[in-house]
Nucleic acid binder design. Structure first.
Lengths: 194, 194
DNA sequence: CTCGAAAATTGCACGTCATGCATCGATGCA
DNA sequence: TGCATCGATGCATGACGTGCAATTTTCGAG
């Protein structure tokens, strides 16, 4: 399946190098002050080539988030088919956040200038998740339910993640809050009133 | 309340003029091909002044969406306190979409280059809606429930709106789909399986 | 191994974007 | 009327993003 030659591997490596350089520079100088020129120099690559990989500085920085979202969807697809959608989602989230780079995430999530691009990443992943949900349920990807389910679940997890990153807490707390929110969605917002 | 002098009124008018000019030009030439210079010229003001009102071309174009979101929150706050949150939200949505400019909305929603900024607008309004919900329920705006409720409800309505704009349908259909989705959230995603 | 096609890298030019700064002008108030 | 504040504008500047063409690298067939 998808045998990758050296060419593809090098491209992947360059892409990762650019992404890491962007995050490293952002951590050192602040997201706002990083320029494409710096990222390219740090990776020892022409500025023009940078734009062959990413269409903007912001896209490079949120690439880590995009990768996590992809991992989430893959983990979701790996869950047993008989598992209910929201439970499968909950388990997938637990596995992905267990191995995530919290510092990088916090950097990205806290940067106001990255908010639009980050949300755009989530939005594009919404469609992929909706398809995965439709597959699992044997529905059409055009149905309303998979779309709403994917969108609201991703949103709920985004809210939890943002709140968690704002307060110093451990991974157990994150998992706990995730389960609480997923439970809320499953049982209905009307019922979950505190 | 909030008496506005001529100064403020002129600023508001200029802002609206810029927004309208941006949309008009986008409708005529396509979103991608509109420049700040054109918008400024159309409104007969200096380019530099444009940036006193909007920090980017995209922000000007999604201003209409921002206004609708604000209207939604205002309408929500106007609903009677004894009404359940999701029902109040549903009624507020119905009232706002009844008077919305569908052509402008479709233009904005369909433009890929506006997606990030549009989502950012929703995200900022999330907080305001969460506060309104917290007020209504007598909870703290820092509680998890208002945040999740606001975020997921806005997201669900965004999904419905996007789907509706993609297919030619009338306002009754939009209202119907809105109610269906709100019902789904209220009853729980687990229950609503078709 | 060699060669030619395909693909990736790079430099260059160009238009646009966005902001800081200084200045000018208009507005509103005492 | 005179002054103080706020908005509008021009200018300069650095960064962004893309099309294009040249150059180098990679890959596979012979």
């Amino acid at each position: 399946m998808t045998v990758v030659g050296r060419r593809e591997r090098k491209k992947l490596a360059t892409r990762a190098a650019l992404r890491d350089a962007a995050l490293r520079l952002a951590l050192r100088h602040g997201v706002e002050h990083v320029t494409v020129e710096q990222i390219a120099a740090e990776t020892d690559i022409a500025v023009r080539t940078f734009f062959n990989y990413f269409s903007s500085k912001e896209e490079a920085m949120v690439a880590a988030v995009a990768a996590e979202a992809d991992a989430l969807i893959a983990a979701f697809r790996d869950r047993p088919r008989e598992e209910p959608v929201l439970r499968a989602l909950r388990e997938a989230v637990a596995r992905v956040i267990a191995v995530s780079d919290t510092d990088a995430l916090r950097l990205i999530v806290r940067a106001p200038s990255l908010l639009p691009q980050r949300l755009a990443v989530y939005a594009t992943r919404e469609k992929a998740l909706a398809e995965a949900i439709a597959d699992r349920l044997g529905l059409s990807p055009d149905d309303l339910y998979p779309a709403v389910c994917a969108a609201t679940a991703l949103t709920a997890m985004r809210v939890v993640l943002e709140r968690w990153l704002d307060r110093p807490a451990d991974h157990a707390a994150l998992r706990e809050q995730t389960e609480e929110v997923i439970g809320l969605l499953a049982a209905g917002l009307e019922r979950g009133l505190p």
